[in-house]
């Protein structure tokens, strides 16, 4: 229970009852009860705001969209049309009729597994490379301009190059994710490592920690908040990259699904898929943020 009345110690039985103290006791209890009630009301209003306001804006937007859709038929389908057209897609994400004719869950799962591999590799390589560049000054100076240029190359621009080099669709898609999401991880890890407080370095020096011990016991934990900033940006970019690259590569995956439905002019299906893309991207971001919060608890000094 977050709210509890901390009762004053009861007057001892052998001391004579003091009417003034008793009266004060009652007044105090009443004041405390009032405090608690006020705090409860504040919390409730806060919660209501947190859930009610988004609900209000979303329904307002949907209503507006619905009105526009009815006013100008033939353009974008209105929400009610989407609901009718894409019933199976919305309510049964798990169907599987073989080939690419699957429910959205399976498309998203395939895309997510690609992100898992590509982003996982980027995370490991990015942290290692960032730690190296953050430690070795001349290496950082040598690579900094290259990194600054490469990180601005958009995901789709990598696709022809990786297709030419790797020749197959699947590894190319993975490479695009990898190369898109690695830069923020490298850069942020590097910043984190360069900013390790001198105090921690001194402790490591006095204890004569080996490079391995230093890496795991000092460098990684000290740079954790920065590393997770990089990972969070990276996971968002990898989700952007997967949808884009799958559009061109074909096969199962949410990106190709969107492209496929576009070619058969099924706008309603595309809208449903977009909602999935957005929600999954949001969940990925929150997930990395939560893991980061958990792992870096206590890493900030004092």
């Amino acid at each position: 229970m977050p709210f509890e009345v901390h009762k004053m110690t009861a007057p001892q039985s052998d001391t004579p009852a003091d009417p003034v103290a008793d009266h004060n006791q009652i007044l105090l209890a009443a004041a405390q009860a009032k405090q608690i009630a006020a705090s409860r009301r504040r919390k409730l209003a806060d919660k209501a705001g947190n859930y009610l306001m988004p609900l209000l804006t979303v329904s307002a937007l949907l209503l507006m969209w619905e009105a526009l859709g009815t006013a100008f038929p033939g353009g974008l389908p209105s929400p009610s049309m989407v609901l009718m057209d894409a019933q199976e897609l919305i309510f049964n994400p798990f169907y599987d009729r073989g080939g690419v004719d699957k429910g959205l869950f399976w498309h998203v799962l395939t895309s997510l597994s690609r992100v898992g591999i590509g982003f996982g590799l980027a995370a490991v390589c990015g942290v290692l490379l960032g730690a190296f560049l953050g430690t070795v000054d001349w290496a950082r100076k040598g690579t900094d301009p290259i990194i600054q240029v490469l990180r601005t190359v958009p995901p789709l621009a990598w696709l022809p190059i990786s297709l030419a080099a790797l020749r197959e669709a699947q590894p190319s898609a993975l490479f695009v994710i990898f190369i898109t999401s690695i830069w923020p991880i490298v850069i942020n890890t590097m910043v984190g490592v360069r900013n390790i407080p001198q105090d921690y370095v001194n402790v490591a020096k006095v204890l004569r920690l080996t490079p391995g011990e230093y890496f795991f016991k000092i460098m990684l934990p000290a740079a954790t908040p920065h590393i997770f900033t990089g990972l969070r940006i990276g996971v968002g970019m990898s989700w952007l990259a997967i949808v884009a690259s799958e559009m061109l590569l074909g096969g199962v995956g949410i990106g190709f699904f969107i492209w496929d439905q576009y070619n058969s002019s099924r706008m309603s299906d595309i809208i449903v898929a977009l909602v999935w893309v957005g929600l999954v991207g949001f969940v990925l971001d929150r997930l990395v943020a939560l893991v980061g919060q958990y792992v870096s608890r206590g890493t900030t000094a004092d």
Partner: peptide, 20 residues
């Protein structure tokens, strides 16, 4: 020539590792 554990230091700002 450099620091070592035979000369332990209690630093002015305690320097504990906050993640441990």
């Amino acid at each position: 020539k450099g620091p070592g554990p035979e000369r332990a230091v209690v630093f002015q700002n305690h320097s504990l590792l906050p993640w441990m």
